[in-house]
Simulated scan of single mutants.
Amino acid sequence: MIKVSVMYPNGPKTKFDSEYYKNSHLPMIAEALGEDLKAMEFNIGIGGRTPGALAPYIAIAHLTFESVASFQSSFGPHAEKFAADVPNYTNVEGELQISEIVS
């Protein structure tokens, strides 16, 4: 199994509409990916390493797939549609990481 994490960097000028992301963007992704998407989790950053510090990421989405191939084949055809929706919820570019789930 693999996890695809999309992490949105935080900063003083970062804007992120978590309601839009949760209620519109993520459901659009789930519908498009269908059965290839095994699980999805959405986290909102609330703090950093020290008290009062900003969270390094304002939001993180985790998507679980059986394999890199299943992620690529299901996500690829919709990548442009997903990217076109980004300005509707944030003014920052998300960082994407693919990880192997080891436990």
Rank of each mutant, 00 (worst) to 15 (best):
H78D: 01
I46R: 07
E80Y: 01
I60F: 01
G76Q: 01
S73K: 14
E66N: 07
S67Q: 06
V68M: 12
V68G: 08
I44G: 05
P51Y: 09
H62Q: 13
F71D: 07
L54K: 09
A83T: 15
A84E: 14
S74L: 13
T90L: 05
G52S: 00
D85S: 03
Y89I: 10
S74I: 08
H62L: 05
T50H: 14
P87H: 13
N88A: 05
Q72W: 05
G47Q: 04
G76K: 04
P77T: 00
A79G: 00
G47T: 05
A59L: 00
K81Q: 10
F75V: 14
K81L: 12
D85R: 03
R49D: 12
L63D: 02
S67D: 02
V92A: 04
P56V: 04
E41K: 14
Q72R: 13
Y57S: 07
M40G: 01
F65L: 04
H62N: 15
H78R: 00
P51V: 07
K81H: 01
S73I: 01
S73V: 12
G47E: 05
H78E: 02
E66L: 13
Y89R: 01
S74K: 12
L63Q: 01
K81N: 12
F75S: 11
A59N: 04
S73C: 09
Y89P: 14
S70V: 07
K81P: 03
M40Y: 14
P56Q: 03
G47S: 06
G52K: 05
Y57F: 13
N43C: 11
A55R: 00
Q72E: 13
N88V: 03
I60G: 11
M40P: 00
Q72G: 15
E80M: 09
E66T: 12
E80I: 12
V92F: 08
T50N: 10
P56W: 00
N91Q: 14
N43I: 11
H62G: 11
I60L: 09
A83K: 07
F65H: 07
I44K: 09
N88W: 03
A59S: 15
R49Y: 15
V86S: 01
A61P: 00
T90C: 09
A53P: 02
A84T: 08
A39S: 05
T50F: 15
E41R: 12
M40K: 06
H78Q: 10
A61H: 06
Y57A: 11
V86R: 04
I44T: 10
T64C: 08
T64S: 12
N43H: 12
V86M: 10
H62S: 10
Q72M: 14
E66K: 10
G48V: 01
F71H: 14
Y57N: 10
N91I: 10
F42V: 15
V86I: 07
P77F: 04
G76I: 08
R49A: 15
L54P: 11
Q72S: 14
A39H: 15
M40L: 07
V68N: 12
N91G: 04
Y57W: 08
P56I: 03
A61M: 10
